Simulated scan of single mutants.
Amino acid sequence: MDGPHGLGVTAEDFGLEGPRGRVFGGLRVDAEPGSLIAIEGPSGSGRTCLLLALTGRMRPTEGTARVGSSRLPQQMAAVRRTSGLAHVPGVTDLDPALTVGEHLRERALLEQRFGGPLRGLLRSWSKGARLAGGQARTGGRAAGAKLRIDSALSAAGLDRESLPKGSRTAVRDLERLESLRLSIALALIGRPRLLGVDDTDLKLSDSERAEVWALLRSIADSGTTVVAVCSEAPEGAVVVSTRPHGEQGAAAEDAATPADADATTATDSATPMDAGTPTDSTADTGTALATRDGGPAQNTPATGAGTPDKNTPDDEETADALAETGRS
């Protein structure tokens, strides 16, 4: 898939602490653009919270990180605009009643409405004004949406023709691996420079896990940095290991994972996005450390990661998140 270059990810003493203890902490990572980063650990060890923090959707309480040229936690909105999420419970959930085609069309429409920068939107309207009639503008948008959908499906390895009813297949009828591929395709329609994927190996067979890692590695090889949550990292990935401590570790991630999809931005009961102080319900203490188990997939310059944005209006943040999560 041809797309923007990936973003480098670095962090030093990166951590998140809630009222009931530390979710993760002491994190240090250095991943080049186009890397495959695996957040490895057992369920409940703060893996999803770390994924949301690195993609600008959860405010850390300790240390600093840099995603491309944007700093965390100072420039979370800029990181959100250049990153995408897939397969995150409570954030990117698929609607089982909708078909594959409906999900794809909806995501493409949201991307057209909210995803592009203002300059590109003005340019498209200026060009459209010179065309004869509104049909030309509509046709151009439809062609662009189709191109984005086809490119995303190809990169995610999802063949609509192989589904039981093609594009008319309902999400409820998809196999688990097909649902994961669809969620990744929806995120890739926005052409993110950093792709975050949660629960990549949950309830998958060994052969299916191998397929998923081959898919994520191919996306990283194309230049998009990938951050994936897993129970066991593959060889050659930049590994970030979360290690829980205490008897309450298993409940922490469930308490911290966002549950309100209508909020349009991934929040956490431990530390809501862009909030200065944590709220309640996180019950986990833990530490995290990063090790390099092999080099990054590609060394691509990380440029254009977004301009600093310390005071993003609420409506702009809502638009960013709507464009990214689709139905969330």
Rank of each mutant, 00 (worst) to 15 (best):
G139A: 14
Q135G: 12
L163E: 04
L147K: 11
L131P: 00
A143W: 05
G140M: 08
L158Y: 00
L174T: 01
L182C: 01
L182R: 05
S154A: 13
L182Q: 05
R160D: 02
I149K: 08
L158T: 03
R176Y: 11
L158G: 04
S162D: 01
S162I: 07
S154G: 13
I149N: 07
P164G: 09
R141A: 09
S179M: 12
R181S: 03
L163Y: 04
L153W: 03
L186I: 04
S167G: 12
R172H: 15
A132G: 10
D150N: 11
R168C: 09
D173P: 03
L186K: 01
G157C: 04
T138K: 12
E175P: 09
A156N: 06
G134A: 14
R137D: 00
L131Y: 08
S167F: 10
R141T: 13
L174H: 07
S151T: 14
K165N: 14
A152S: 04
G166Y: 00
L147C: 01
A145R: 01
G134L: 13
I149H: 00
Q135T: 11
A170P: 13
L182D: 02
P164I: 06
A156C: 00
L180E: 01
D150C: 03
S162W: 08
S179R: 11
A156F: 09
S162F: 09
K165M: 12
L163P: 06
K146A: 15
I149V: 15
E161L: 12
R181M: 09
